[in-house]
């Protein structure tokens, strides 16, 4: 394998219902930085049905070119069809680096592509860098259940690949009118060649605020003691008009569903207010919430690492503090309400 043949940074662009996933735009921001450091081009790979028009968005967010596979066979994401397109593109144009969002689609696709190439794949990356002279990708992620960080390298294979957590990298401010090259590609693929079929797609609209979109999140951890104790989190969230978050062990204990899990193996969140109650603050949790604008921690243990990652901390018993806070908050807000009439 001659490494000289492999050039450029690629981002797999995830598209759904005609819109580009935010994580793909974030990766274009991160990819731009890597491409500039290497002095190479940044490309987005767009696969879908009627998606060609999205290429201009990629250019606005930093891509120099877009490889486009536009065909009805790509209407729904399927591992086999998308993988074939990406393998075709990679074999033809030989990128040095391919980045994917660490979404269910991105991870599914990257795992398959890595096996077929074959090459190394780093999962759930939270920090990205590249060696200027060698092009070696430095992909770092929390490891061993989130107790430490590890930098993963792939020295002997190209392209190098990583899936990257959503909301960790920053998208560039879009530059309207920025132009790039569209490279239209196609592969010979019949419906009969694909062994899976999407029969139905069902959207589940939850009444509750989704935590990845919430401005206020109240999150609870094992320190609350039990599923009953965790109700305190629901109460405060309801009072503040926020969403409910949770640490991993709470989800594993079954106190609350996985959709509420904040952290490396859950959701990354960036609310305006994040209140962590009874959460000790393992790295695995911290990476998922550290970019929140205001972080408040309440914990009995003065040594809890969460206090190193918060803006304001209270050492104390949540069962004493939170009910008091709820009362006082309601009192103040009802007065505010009157004064606004």
């Amino acid at each position: 394998m001659d490494f000289q043949d492999y050039q450029g940074v690629w981002v797999f662009i995830e598209e759904k219902d005609g819109a580009i996933a935010p994580v793909s735009l974030e990766l274009l921001g991160a990819g731009r930085r890597l491409a500039d450091k290497r002095g190479v081009e940044l490309a987005g790979v767009l696969i879908g049905d009627h998606i060609k028009h999205l290429a201009k968005t990629l250019f606005e967010y930093g891509a120099d070119l877009a490889y486009v596979y536009d065909d009805p066979i790509f209407k729904h994401y399927r591992t086999e069809s998308f993988m074939k397109a990406l393998l075709d593109c990679s074999a033809k144009y030989k990128p040095e680096i391919i980045l994917y969002g660490a979404t269910s689609t991105g991870k599914d696709l990257a795992s398959a592509v890595a096996t077929d190439l074959p090459t190394g794949l780093t999962a759930d990356t939270t920090e990205l860098d590249v060696e200027e002279d060698t092009g070696l990708l430095l992909a770092s992620r929390p490891a061993f259940g989130g107790n430490i960080m590890a930098t993963i390298l792939c020295k002997k294979y190209r392209p190098q690949m990583a899936t990257v957590r959503a909301k960790v990298m920053k998208a560039l401010p879009p530059e309207s009118g920025r132009l790039g090259r569209v490279v239209e590609e196609s592969i010979l693929l019949q419906e009969e060649d694909i062994r899976t079929k999407v029969l139905e797609i069902v959207k589940e609209t939850t009444k509750k605020v989704r935590i990845d979109e919430a401005d206020i999140i109240v999150a609870g951890g094992k320190g609350l003691g039990s599923a009953e104790g965790f109700q305190l989190v629901h109460q405060l969230a309801e009072t503040l008009g926020g969403a409910v978050g949770a640490s991993r062990d709470v989800v594993e204990a079954g106190w609350v569903e996985h959709a509420h899990q904040v952290g490396q193996t859950g959701v990354t969140v960036t609310p305006k207010i994040y209140i962590a109650i009874g959460i000790s603050g393992a790295i695995q949790h911290i990476v998922g919430m550290k970019n929140s604008s205001l972080i408040i921690a309440i914990n009995k243990d003065p040594q809890a690492p969460i206090f190193e990652s918060c803006h304001y901390g209270i050492v104390g018993d949540a069962f004493e503090i939170v009910p008091l806070l709820i009362d006082r908050f309601q009192e103040v807000m009802s007065k505010e309400g009157v004064s606004h009439v």
Binding site: P118, T119, G120, L121, T122, L138, A143, I148, M149, A150, T151, I152, L153, C154, K155, K156, Y157, I283, K290, I295, A297, F307, E308, S309, C310, H311, Y312, G313, I314, V315
Partner: peptide, 18 residues
């Protein structure tokens, strides 16, 4: 193909106001 080149404890954030 992948190797762990470096393992580190991330820098401790400064911590907030108690």
């Amino acid at each position: 193909p992948t190797i762990v080149s470096k393992v580190w404890a991330p820098p401790k954030p400064e911590g907030g106001t108690m």
